[in-house]
Design a protein around this nucleic acid. Structure first.
Lengths: 222, 222
DNA sequence: GCATATTTGTCCGTATGTATA
DNA sequence: CTATACATACGGACAAATATG
């Protein structure tokens, strides 16, 4: 056994830069609409512009950056249409995955863990954790479908939605009211009433969408 | 009128190279599993290695190429697991989009056009056209959901599935038996019986999946 | 198992075109 | 309209990893 095992260096530098940028985008360090300058960023990250550009292309395909030819890359700014589209996908994908979900599926354990984490965090007033636990709950729902491609697709959608959340303040209003609903959905699934759980989720998503669109209308004019 | 008008240059060279490579992959000019050499291809396409590498990153995210660090990029080789995963996605996405489809939706016209194109092509014995018309039919089904993100996702899935088809010979066995089923699905939808259409599509996809998996088992050992 | 050739990963410098102040 | 800043694209270089004999 060696001492180092110097981490799986994620082998290529481009992918590491990509992951780093992804974190800085979804954490809100880079704000939606902000332009990411090649020269400035490559200097900051101490990588070549070529490497950075490759990372840009990857993140563009991930839906986190937008590439405007000859103008640069920008952090995407989800608008109303984007939120509506994303929720259309969520209703279709999540509700269907849930409706065909089996109570014994391993993802159910992840759903329960996420709900409990959310409740604990709400107790502690840590809304950040409440939010990410909520998103983990819904990712676990998608896991029920047992499709790697669907999971990857949903991860993209979720990342973009997170950007939209970041444009709003008051995370407790976005996630806290839904913890009880998540619990009810989970218990319906665990009780073998998957179709009922799916209908509850559909209602959940409709309310969540309205909440976000409303908040966006209030905080941003267009 | 000038001579050249060198095509709408699709502005950036990287995207043009990307589209060019995509065509050569899905047309089967580049075979699944084949390695694409940076130096050879960049010389062939008369672009720099950097530009080519950016195109590689984009196509990797599209699911058409696979990137193995320090080894190169390869055309993806869909295996049994990939086909199963893809059909899981298709059943979830297509059936749901169809079940909630409205008979008056513009996509219904595209569905009908695709069916008629397939029937004409079958008459003419042009199985190539039968195949692409069939795929257009199913893409139109996804259009019913009115989600740009879902459409883009399905396009990826369809491109990967096309690679799997390319590994098989005898395209008539893959698509021709399903033209009548497509027509029946379309007529059910046009008649306002969306749920029934969805059930028919589910059955369709199950048969199609079995057909492909069987053909793969016969032509390839694993 | 070793030495060598090939290829990728990454960087730099530079020329050109495009957008913007 | 000019000037400037920036993205685009190229070619060359070298180290490190991998493939080859």
């Amino acid at each position: 056994m060696s001492v180092a095992d110097p981490l799986p260096p994620t082998l290529t530098l481009t992918t590491r830069i990509c992951a780093q940028l992804r974190d800085r985008v979804i954490s809100g360090e880079f704000l939606p609409g902000q332009r990411l300058s090649e020269s400035a960023l490559s200097a900051d990250l101490a990588v070549s512009r070529n490497t950075l550009r490759e990372a840009f292309r990857l993140l563009t395909k991930d839906g986190l950056l937008r590439h405007e030819p000859n103008r640069g890359v920008f952090v995407v700014t989800p608008d109303h249409a984007a939120v509506i589209d994303i929720y259309r996908v969520r209703r279709l994908v999540e509700c269907r995955a849930l409706a065909q979900g089996e109570p014994g599926h391993p993802a159910v354990r992840r759903m329960r863990a996420a709900v409990e984490r959310a409740m604990d965090a709400r107790e502690a007033g840590d809304w950040r954790v409440v939010g990410s636990a909520n998103m983990a709950f819904h990712a676990a729902i998608v896991d029920l479908a047992d499709s790697a491609r669907l999971v990857a697709f949903y991860a993209q959608i979720a990342a973009e939605l997170r950007l939209a959340f970041g444009l709003l303040d008051a995370p407790e209003f976005l996630h806290a009211p839904f913890i009880e609903r998540n619990l009810a959905i989970l218990e319906a699934l665990e009780g073998g009433r998957a179709e009922e759980a799916s209908r509850m989720l559909d209602d959940y998503l409709q309310r969540s969408e309205r909440l976000i669109l409303g908040a966006m209308s209030r905080t941003r004019p267009a």
